[in-house]
Design a protein around this nucleic acid. Structure first.
Length: 188
DNA sequence: CCCTGATTCGC
DNA sequence: GCGAATCAGG
């Protein structure tokens, strides 16, 4: 087809707010994800950009806050009574945690022997399950996702990124250098 | 200090 | 229209 397949520097230039991105943005925002979380998943944009877009789209003010501080200039529940009322009249809030199976930006080695509880010199990361995974935690997968032993790194992730400094280096290697597989890429 | 969204304003 | 800087808050 097109001869615009110049893949010299595969830095994945992020287009802009394409229909798809806007749709995803809408979905995630309505799902209750924070702007920074959405920004992280979209990639190439900051939380400011996300917030700005959200407002331009007229999506400001969501229904359900989530986790840490949210909703500042908005009405919020103050007392337990109000909370009960809100919960009762609003809706049966039983929606699953908004855990989006984000597509791994770079194809990283997910195929690896299950992580073993061995502390290899380096401090064994505070591995966590998906339940304990917080936005500020490294999402680097450890082990077989189908195994109950599956865990995430859980280390302090770089703000705005899904991984800690350690794993971000592995995850975001330039395509050129990634070529085959770095020994160092082996999960630690 | 970590985080949240809201707003402004130059581009 | 976009988003960094800033603001205001938890």
């Amino acid at each position: 087809m097109s001869a615009i397949e110049s893949e010299g520097a595969m830095v994945e230039a992020i287009p802009s707010w394409t229909d798809e991105r806007v749709e995803l943005l809408r979905r995630l925002w309505e799902e209750g994800l924070s702007a920074s979380q959405i920004a992280s998943q979209l990639g190439g944009v900051t939380r400011n950009a996300v917030i700005g877009k959200v407002h331009r789209l007229g999506l400001a003010g969501r229904v359900k806050p989530n986790g840490a501080g949210q909703v500042t200039g908005r009405k919020k529940i103050e007392t337990e009574s109000e909370a009960a009322i809100a919960l009762g009249s609003e809706q049966t809030i039983s929606e699953p945690p908004a855990v989006i199976s984000h597509r791994p930006a770079p194809s990283f080695p997910l195929t690896q022997p299950a992580a073993k509880p061995e502390q290899n010199g380096l401090a064994v990361s505070e591995r966590v399950t998906i339940m304990d995974l917080r936005e500020s935690m490294c999402r680097w997968p450890l082990g077989d996702p189908t195994s109950p032993d599956f865990r995430f790194c859980g280390g302090r992730s770089i703000t705005g990124l899904p991984y800690c400094t350690q794993h971000a280096q592995i995850a975001y290697q330039p395509a050129a250098e990634r070529k085959r597989d770095r020994r160092v890429a082996g999960i630690r």
